[in-house]
Design a protein around this nucleic acid. Structure first.
Lengths: 220, 220
DNA sequence: ACCTGAACACCGTTCAAGT
DNA sequence: ACCTGAACACCGTTCAAGT
């Protein structure tokens, strides 16, 4: 009678996700994942080819977290919802960004995703070419935004004040007049929230796409 | 009489860049950087605090590679040039993307950069708020585009054919009809080049920004 | 079939020792 | 001042051995 459930493919991936969520990508070692399951590292090799394969599966797991666009929604709403879902997925599992680099090969969940998004656009009057443009632009923006958001030297919310204090102590702000102007404006005007930037930038792209879509329709 | 120049801060960073360019971020170890300089790993600690500090300096080195926007250019041209420069910098040193995640603290070259960009926008009639929006959107797009470009499962140029062949062998393309449609269109129409997507998406953002800028001006 | 101990070739880092 | 050898606590992975 085993005290803990037997090892399995899925249990290993779940354990790896827990380790990554807790301590970041650097903590994901075969030894640590084994420890998470109360097992020696070597046991994992009976269920997983190796560490590279495990990381590939982590990427796939991550893409299953992003909601597929709802085919019944109008395209603009569907794209905005998908972007929001991708964004929350990355902020809950920021280690995914570090993995995505050069690891998109053989990620089934990603293919499923791409196909559904393209279908949504095509069904809404996008030409193949415009759908490709739209997909590329939206995807780049969403990933890039989360990447830059992760890099903000302060945490979301009220950390801005402490950040400004720290910065003032370390950096001669007089050397960066425009940065200083923006920071003081942000601090004075407490309504600023970097998270709002996400929708603003996305709307820039969606507005232009809408215009291109109408122009295409008029040209036919 | 030393056969090779003495170790120094800058020589260590240059060596680390060479190692990263050659073998990616995983190859950047204190031992390998030492080997690149014909020196034991332990010698590096006399010039660099440790590996984390070395990686911080690599990020800073990377940002010095991106051209600052030319203050004499109109804003749209300046932003497009900067975006192109950032893009080529990342494709020459793709390891930088993996580093940028949560390492933006204390990167002087990045502050210089941000300030110059903001200055360019402000001088061209952007309000502080619109300049912040513009900066955030463009930056996110540029990084995100290169990130997704790195993930393309084929190399730039003629690799598309081989990729389609490979994909056909591994994946049931019938399950992904819209993906199949796009791929066949791309292969039939040989003029497709993913690199063209970069400018198209950037123009989507810049077009909308221009419209917002005009609306702001009209409102005053 | 499933798990493990010992071993190998790697890491980053410290510290006492050499020149 | 600058470099190093040995040591420590980590990696991923193999392989023969245990149940």
């Amino acid at each position: 009678m085993p005290r803990r459930p037997a090892l399995s493919h899925d249990r290993i991936i779940d354990a790896a996700v827990r380790v990554a969520d807790r301590g970041g990508l650097t903590q994901v070692s075969m030894r640590n994942v084994g420890k998470e399951l109360g097992v020696e590292a070597m046991s994992l090799y009976h269920h997983v080819t190796g560490k590279e394969a495990l990381l590939d599966e982590l990427v796939n797991w991550f893409f299953t977290r992003i909601e597929l666009p709802d085919p019944r929604q109008p395209w603009r709403r569907a794209m905005a919802d998908r972007a929001a879902s991708a964004r929350t997925a990355v902020s809950e599992h920021p280690w995914a960004l570090g993995l995505i680099e050069s690891r998109t090969n053989s990620v089934p969940a990603l293919l499923r995703h791409h196909d559904t998004v393209l279908g949504c656009l095509r069904r809404n009057g996008f030409s193949v070419a415009l759908a490709a443009h739209a997909f590329s632009a939206i995807d780049a923006y969403v990933y890039g935004f989360v990447l830059t958001e992760l890099n903000l030297p302060f945490e979301a919310g009220e950390g801005v004040d402490e950040f400004v204090d720290q910065l003032r102590r370390r950096v001669p702000l007089d050397d960066y007049p425009h940065l200083a102007e923006m920071i003081t404006e942000q601090v004075v005007n407490r309504s600023y929230d970097y998270a709002d930037e996400f929708e603003f930038g996305l709307d820039l792209i969606l507005d232009s796409l809408q215009a291109r879509l109408l122009a295409d329709g008029a040209a036919e």
